[in-house]
C-alpha cells in the first residue's frame, strides 16, 4: 500500500477524522498566545500549568470522574491566575514558584495515581497523560465538541482583545498609565492560557505542551517583523506542523505528540535559516 492508500484507509474511521479536526484547532489556539508568552518571558508558565493539569487528571481518575475536563479546566485556570498574580508582586521569586508548583503537582499526581488507581496498566496511563501517546485517538464525540467550542471561544477572545493584548505585552506601564486596565487583560491572558493547556493535553500530553506554544512563535519571530504578521505566521506554522505530524504518525505508527513536536523542531530550524537569509539580503 502506498502512503495515500494508508491515509484514505485510516480516514474511513471517524476517530481519525476527529483527531485531525481537534489537532488542527488545538494547534491554532496554542500558537495564538505564544508570541505574548515568549515576549512577556512567561514561557515556563505553560510548562508549569501543564503539570498542574496532570495532577488534576490524576485526582479526577482516582475520584472516578468519567468526564474529567471540567475539573481539570477549573484547577488549571485557578493556578494560572495565582501564578500570574504572584509573578506581578514578587518578581524575583516568580520562576521559582512556577518550578515549585509544577514539580509538586507532577509528583503528587503520580503518587496519587500509584496509590489509588485501580487500572491494570498504570505506567501506560501515566505515559499517555505525559506524552499524549494515544489519547488523541480515543477522543469521544463529547470531547471533540468540547474542544471545538473551547477553540472557538479562545480564538474569538484573542481576536477581540488583540489590540489590548498587544498594548499590554509591549509596554504594561504605559498601558496602565494611559488608562488601559492591564490587570484585567493579564487575567484574561492567564485564563486563555489555562484553557489552551487543557485542550492541548489531549494532543501532545502535558510534557510537550510548551513546544506547541513556543516553537510557532519563535519561528515566526525569526521571519516576520510586525506583530500581526508574526501572529498570523505562527498560527499557520502551527497548523501545518500539526497536520504533517498527525499524518506522519498515522502512516508510520509513531506517537502523535512527539511526532508533531519533531516536525515543529524541523520547522523552527527552517525558519531560522530563512530569517538568516532574509537578514543577509537586507544588508
Amino acid at each position: 500500500m502506498n502512503v495515500f492508500q494508508i491515509l484514505s484507509a485510516n480516514f474511513a474511521y471517524p476517530f481519525v477524522r476527529y483527531a485531525l479536526i481537534t489537532g488542527v484547532l488545538i494547534a491554532l489556539c496554542s500558537s495564538l498566545l505564544g508570541v505574548t508568552l515568549v515576549l512577556k518571558r512567561f514561557s515556563f508558565i505553560g510548562d508549569g500549568l501543564s503539570h498542574v493539569a496532570f495532577g488534576a487528571i490524576a485526582i479526577a481518575s482516582v475520584l472516578k470522574i468519567t468526564n474529567d475536563m471540567p475539573l481539570v479546566l477549573a484547577v488549571t485556570i485557578l493556578c494560572a491566575v495565582l501564578l500570574l498574580r504572584t509573578g506581578q508582586h514578587a518578581k524575583i521569586k516568580g520562576d521559582a514558584i512556577i518550578a515549585m508548583i509544577s514539580v509538586g503537582a507532577l509528583a503528587i499526581g503520580y503518587l496519587i495515581m500509584n496509590k489509588f488507581s485501580t487500572s491494570s496498566n498504570l505506567s501506560g496511563d501515566v505515559c499517555s497523560t505525559l506524552f499524549g501517546s494515544t489519547s488523541i485517538l480515543t477522543l469521544t464525540k463529547t470531547d471533540v465538541v468540547l474542544s471545538i467550542v473551547l477553540s472557538v471561544v479562545v480564538t474569538a477572545a484573542f481576536v477581540l482583545f488583540y489590540n489590548k493584548i498587544f498594548a499590554v505585552t509591549f509596554d504594561e506601564d504605559f498601558a496602565k498609565a494611559t488608562g488601559t486596565k492591564a490587570g484585567i487583560y493579564n487575567l484574561i491572558i492567564a485564563v486563555i492560557i489555562a484553557v489552551i493547556i487543557v485542550l492541548a493535553m489531549n494532543l501532545v500530553g502535558s510534557l510537550l505542551i510548551s513546544a506547541l506554544v513556543i516553537f510557532p512563535a519563535l519561528s515566526a519571530m525569526r521571519m516576520f517583523k510586525s506583530f500581526r504578521s508574526v501572529t498570523i505566521c505562527s498560527a499557520v506554522f502551527s497548523v501545518v506542523c500539526a497536520v504533517l505530524g498527525i499524518l506522519i504518525s498515522i502512516v508510520d505508527g509513531t506517537p502523535v505528540g512527539s511526532t508533531i513536536v519533531a516536525v515543529d523542531i524541523v520547522g523552527f530550524l527552517t525558519a531560522l535559516c530563512i530569517g538568516k537569509l532574509k537578514g543577509a539580503k537586507a544588508k
Binding site: 515576549l39 489590540n163 509591549f170 488608562g179 519571530m221 508574526v230
Partner: peptide, 22 residues
C-alpha cells in the same frame, strides 16, 4: 528588555497609544 526583541511595526506601536481611550 522586552522591547529590544519585540516584533512590531512602527505603526502598530504608535497606534497602541490610542488604546487607553478605547
Amino acid at each position: 528588555e522586552v522591547q529590544k526583541d519585540f516584533p512590531a511595526s512602527v505603526r502598530e506601536i504608535v497606534l497602541s497609544g490610542c488604546q487607553g481611550h478605547k
